[in-house]
Amino acid sequence: MQERSRRTQAALIRATTELVAEAGYHGATTKAIAERAGVSEGTIYRHFPDKKALFAAAVMAGQRDVTEWMEQLPGRAGSAPVVELLAETLTQLSRLREAVLPLEEASPHVMRPVEDLSREELVDALRSTGGPPLLLADFLAAEQRLGRLRSDLDPARTAVMLLAAFLGVQTSPLAGSKGLDEDDVQLFAELFCAGLVTGRDPAASS
C-alpha cells in the first residue's frame, strides 16, 4: 500500500511539473493534473492537503541538490551554534527562490492558513511535501532534544513559519531582483534564532 501511495504521489508530481511547463501554474488545474496522472481528481486530496501543497511538492522534487544537502541537516544538530547552522540552511534554501516565485501567484487562497491546521494535519502536509520542509522540522526537533531550542516549540509548526517567513522575504520586491545577500541571510537567522534558542544571545548558542 505504501509503495502504491508513493507511485501515485510521484505520478501527480510528474503530471504537475509537465502541465506547469506547458500551461503555467494557473493552467495546471487539479482536473488536468489528475487526468494526466491517470487518477481521479479526488485522489489528489488523499495525498496532498491542497493544490498549493502539490505545487510545492513539485517544486521541491525539482530541487534535488537542495534536498540532498538538507538530508544531512538533522544529523548535524549540535555540531555548531544554532544560528550558524540556521544561516547555512537559509543560504541553501535561497537557491529555491526562483522556483518558489511562481507559487506566489498560484492561487494563494487555496492554501489554508497554518493557524487553521491541527498539528496532525500540519505534520501530514509536511510529510506529503517532503524535502526541505520536513527535514527542517526534523533538524529543529533534534536541536530541541539536545536542549538547545525552547522546549515549548512545535518543530513542525516552527519549520512552516520559518520557511514561510524566509521565502516570503526572499520573494518580496523589498529583497530586490536577486533576493537577500549573505549579510541579510545572516541577520534573518539571528533575528529568528532570538525567539528559538534557550540562551539570550543566539550567536553564542552552542
Results as ranks from 00 to 15, higher is better:
18 E>I: 13
100 V>K: 00
182 E>A: 15
132 P>L: 06
55 F>Q: 08
82 V>Q: 02
145 R>Y: 00
151 S>E: 15
189 A>Y: 08
127 R>S: 11
191 L>I: 13
65 D>M: 09
96 L>Y: 08
205 S>R: 10
22 E>C: 01
29 T>M: 05
18 E>Y: 03
125 A>I: 05
84 E>R: 14
187 L>C: 01
132 P>T: 00
70 M>P: 05
87 A>G: 12
187 L>G: 01
85 L>G: 15
96 L>H: 09
179 G>F: 01
90 L>W: 04
90 L>F: 12
147 G>C: 01
88 E>T: 13
80 A>F: 06
66 V>T: 10
39 V>M: 12
183 D>P: 00
143 E>K: 00
141 A>I: 07
97 R>I: 05
63 Q>M: 14
135 L>C: 02
79 S>E: 15
46 R>L: 15
26 H>M: 11
73 L>H: 07
187 L>D: 12
92 Q>V: 11
160 V>T: 14
181 D>R: 01
20 V>A: 07
33 I>G: 10
148 R>S: 02
49 P>I: 09
112 R>M: 06
202 P>M: 09
69 W>H: 13
73 L>I: 06
62 G>L: 08
120 E>M: 06
28 A>R: 11
147 G>E: 06
135 L>N: 01
158 T>A: 09
12 L>Q: 10
8 T>C: 11
74 P>C: 02
39 V>F: 13
54 L>M: 09
62 G>W: 03
195 G>Y: 09
196 L>C: 07
74 P>D: 08
143 E>C: 07
145 R>N: 04
39 V>T: 15
162 L>C: 05
175 A>Y: 02
126 L>G: 06
100 V>N: 01
73 L>A: 14
86 L>R: 08
184 D>Y: 00
81 P>G: 10
40 S>R: 14
144 Q>W: 07
124 D>T: 13
20 V>L: 08
87 A>W: 02
139 F>E: 06
82 V>F: 15
68 E>I: 07
25 Y>H: 14
168 G>E: 05
179 G>Y: 01
138 D>F: 00
100 V>Y: 09
81 P>R: 08
163 L>I: 08
170 Q>F: 07
180 L>M: 15
204 A>N: 09
203 A>I: 10
134 L>E: 14
159 A>Y: 01
56 A>S: 12
8 T>G: 11
157 R>P: 05
19 L>Y: 06
146 L>M: 11
30 T>P: 12
112 R>N: 04
132 P>W: 00
186 Q>L: 12
32 A>L: 14
37 A>T: 13
113 P>Q: 03
153 L>T: 04
160 V>Q: 12
146 L>K: 14
